[in-house]
Amino acid sequence: MLTKILAAASLLIALGTIAASYSQRSALTLRQATPPTYWPRYGTTLSGQYRGNTWVSLPNRSAYGSFRGGGPSAGK
């Protein structure tokens, strides 16, 4: 019984993750509101969002100037 449940769970995980990766649900769809499934790659964050189908830059876009690098010395 336990092995049946484990097999069913692993099948669900396999189908779910394959569907998610092949359908690219983490990608940004042009001219559509950013979906909750959007998942940035390499910490590349969107600097705006769609209002209707127009891209509007975020007001805090100018805040990038506060960036002071990373590394072990950052924030310590």
């Binding site: 600097s47 705006g48 127009t54 960036f67 990373g70």
Partner: peptide
């Protein structure tokens, strides 16, 4: 017309 923009803050440091 701008369709989308995304920002990346990159760095290279040593010490």
């Amino acid at each position: 017309k701008i369709l989308t923009t995304a920002i990346k803050q990159s760095w290279r440091e040593s010490g």
